[in-house]
Design a protein around this nucleic acid. Structure first.
Lengths: 224, 224
DNA sequence: TGCGGTTAAATGAACAACCATTCATCATAT
DNA sequence: ATATGATGAATGGTTGTTCATTTAACCGCA
């Protein structure tokens, strides 16, 4: 007598129970999905196309997710996770809040640069998810934001950043500086590369946050 | 014997020839479409729903556009046009490049604020259009950008803005400051209103562009 | 080692729902 | 009368999802 098995893994229903296999197959599916969603959009991308691209059968996908929305959810999660993975790597070993924020923004821009179309995909498709999933994606965005906002808070406490800063606004000034590189790449690519973009944008971004004392501190940082 | 009539109006095919009627009906259709596209996304919004919302029959829509893509195109055009309409109104009578840029950004933010979901819609759906339409939308974006970049160029010539500025980057710093208000409103609304957003963001935005001489000039501007 | 027996995983053809678009028909104004 | 504008039911193509079936892996036992 067969026993019906099933699990939730990463909040997503799966018929298959072996966690290692689920991770493997899903990342195979997600890789194909992110590529096709980015190229053709969510609705034009059929499950059949994703299956073909991932070299599996359409039916297999439904062993690992409940529906097509779940594929999108896992795709966006994959993108957000790459932010949350890369930024802390860049922060490691940097204690000074100003230097830490600068390193974080650089790292953020670098992931965005490596995953430009995926970053744009997140803007295009988050709203297509059902309420609950959308909330989860927002929560992931906030988690990556926090990696920056922590630096800003610490910078304020240290007197380097202006004390009357609204931290949420300041955080989004940084986040959007990074995202803009992907969102407006279609235009900017004709005028600068990532290094030049950082070179012009980063100093003024930090300047927007720094206090008078912080400016001195920052000048000392970049000349050593 | 019936004579087949037809016209192109705003690059969009219409069976109906009377330009005034076309303008009226289309704006009726577009109003409904922008609302529904924003709420439910492009693909979930059926022509039937748009027709119901606009209080016309589904068939009528096809008297005024070739296909559903055209409805989206006209919707995005409507949004872009509102930028291109409002910004020049704010610029009228302001000669000083710095003051002119500030007024432009304020006006831009204000339209974005009034049409938040529409602004987000443009980000979500531009890529769904066929190549040629997408190019046209890009061209409209550039046209509104130009309203800002002209101020920046003039400001550089006048010595108020830093001469080594990359104008494209600088323009997008301004544009994205405005768009961010819509794109991240879901979060920012809990922390500030538009005035506070402008109060914190505008000075540092301008500071990013100003030269030393420009800073003096700007200080004089805001104290009078 | 080899061999039934059992379960998990994978397949892909078929189905049912959905929706953009058409068109035969009707209304209206000139 | 005639041409233009409006209607909305019908259609044809598309695609998410299911499920009957096949394949493969594993296990206990002789």
């Amino acid at each position: 007598m067969a026993v019906e098995e099933s699990t939730m893994i990463d909040e997503v229903y799966s018929q298959v129970t072996d966690p290692k296999l689920v991770r493997e197959r899903r990342s195979q599916i997600v890789a194909a999905a992110v590529k096709l969603f980015s190229e053709e959009g969510y609705y034009r991308t059929t499950i059949q196309k994703i299956a073909r691209e991932a070299r599996v059968s359409p039916g297999l996908i439904y062993q690992y997710v409940k529906d097509k929305d779940d594929v999108l959810y896992l795709s966006l999660k994959d993108i957000m996770d790459s932010y949350c993975h890369e930024i802390p790597l860049a922060q490691a070993g940097i204690g000074d809040p100003v230097a830490r924020l600068e390193a974080s923004v650089r790292a953020y821009c670098k992931v965005v640069d490596q995953r430009k179309t995926a970053t744009v995909l997140a803007y295009r498709t988050s709203a297509l998810l059902p309420q609950q999933r959308r909330e989860a994606v927002k929560a992931m965005e906030l988690k990556s934001n926090q990696l920056l906002s922590e630096c800003i808070s610490q910078g304020i406490e240290a007197g380097y950043f202006s004390p009357e800063l609204n931290i949420e606004i300041a955080t989004y000034q940084c986040v959007m500086f990074c995202h803009t590189w992907a969102l407006k790449y279609w235009r900017l690519k004709a005028y600068c590369n990532l290094d030049q973009y950082l070179q012009q944008g980063l100093p003024s971004l930090l300047n927007a946050l720094l206090s008078a004392a912080g400016r001195d501190h920052y000048d000392r940082l970049i000349t050593t």
